[in-house]
Design a protein around this nucleic acid. Structure first.
Lengths: 210, 210
DNA sequence: GCCTCGAATTTGACGATGTCAAGACTGGTT
DNA sequence: AACCAGTCTTGACATCGTCAAATTCGAGGC
């Protein structure tokens, strides 16, 4: 029996495989993804993925990129909330940490060395590696940069490279996410309090003397 | 030929295996560690490690704990430098990020989900999991807590739960480390500047009104 | 000195995995 | 009808984690 291809339907096998792989990693972590299991789950043969992804690393890399894109969407959605700079930034950072808590395995994957290494080696030049970062990761923070630029134009924030401020906020949010992921019990306060007080402190530093 | 056991000498095979495993992970990442390769490298047979470590996960877990201990040592050493609170904290955070940059693979391992999951599942109770965190990870920041408590006693810092401040600093340093690891080029300023300005901002928040 | 016992280590074996090479099916073109 | 390129499957191989059985080895009693 050759087996009927089920809901493969119109769309590519590629996207089916990609989303299946994402699902496998989402519950179970990276170690839960095997190409054979992926084939099984998707109703195709074990080596079918090789027609779309050169490598397991390539597949994982694409899953990572897709996760970054989803993170970016979530942040963008959060950033459009009404309010002043601090309110909006807090919403954005909450989205960041929220994604990490909702999808711990994907979040971990995004910053695992498998991803970085593959991106660096396979995309050949360092320039494209940076481009990857810009497209996938930094895009998640473009909204922040715009919000900050706007605040600077309104003289609510000192004139500084907006990206520097973005990096500062990003670093802080990332650390909070990691701490929260590690084991929530040890945290003294709530994740949200930690996020809010830190954000306030970091933003205050860039307030104009006025 | 049974082969002469080389420099196993007096010390346990266990510590030899542990340090060899650490070395394998340090260059090459977690995926570069296989029990068979470990045996080869250590001059013993493939299943020899099973007498000391129940699992590959158990072995990796111990490597992680050992890495946390080394991180803690490095931070402690940095914290004893002379100077005011900010100077000392900056030295400590630099040590944190420095470790991450020097040992990216070990650093990643320490926060990978394999480590967390194994600790949670194998050490049976949640209590011991927390104990692990306290012993290995939080120990790295005990020095910070002490420095902060001292500053509070001297009224240089507002009375707050010192651990909350420690968490704030930790989160920030961790995020900076991650950003720096990802790909150093994109960073707007130097890692050190980022660290310093962020620390200043976060500490200022807890300065007494005075 | 030999023997025994228990721990430390090895060898054998099994299922699972990533990956490559070769084959088979498919639809559309000439 | 013959061909063809794209898509997928089957077969095969080395490697891996792990368990069970076998082996080596060193110390203590006779």
């Amino acid at each position: 029996m050759t087996g009927v291809r089920i809901p493969n339907s119109a769309t590519n096998l590629e996207s089916l495989l990609l989303s299946t792989a994402e699902g496998l990693i989402a519950d179970g972590g990276l170690s839960a993804l095997s190409l054979r299991e992926l084939g099984r789950e998707a109703g195709v043969s074990r080596t079918a993925p090789y027609h779309y992804f050169a490598d397991k690393a390539a597949l994982v890399s694409k899953v990572g990129a897709s996760s970054f894109a989803r993170l970016a969407d979530r942040i963008d959605a959060a950033l459009v909330t009404a309010g002043d700079l601090e309110t909006r930034c807090l919403a954005g950072l909450r989205a960041y940490v929220g994604f990490a808590l909702d999808e711990p395995h994907l979040f971990r994957l995004m910053f695992s060395d498998v991803l970085i290494r593959h991106t660096l080696m396979h995309d050949a030049t360092m320039a494209t590696a940076v481009a990857f970062r810009n497209d996938s990761a930094l895009r998640a923070f473009r909204g922040f940069a715009e919000a900050i630029s706007a605040a600077q134009a309104a003289h609510e924030l000192a004139a500084e490279d907006p990206m520097l401020i973005v990096q500062t906020l990003w670093a802080y949010a990332h650390g909070v996410a990691e701490l929260a992921l590690g084991d929530k019990i040890t945290l003294v306060g709530s994740v949200d309090d930690l996020l809010e007080s830190g954000l306030k402190a970091l933003l205050d530093r860039y307030r104009p003397a006025d």
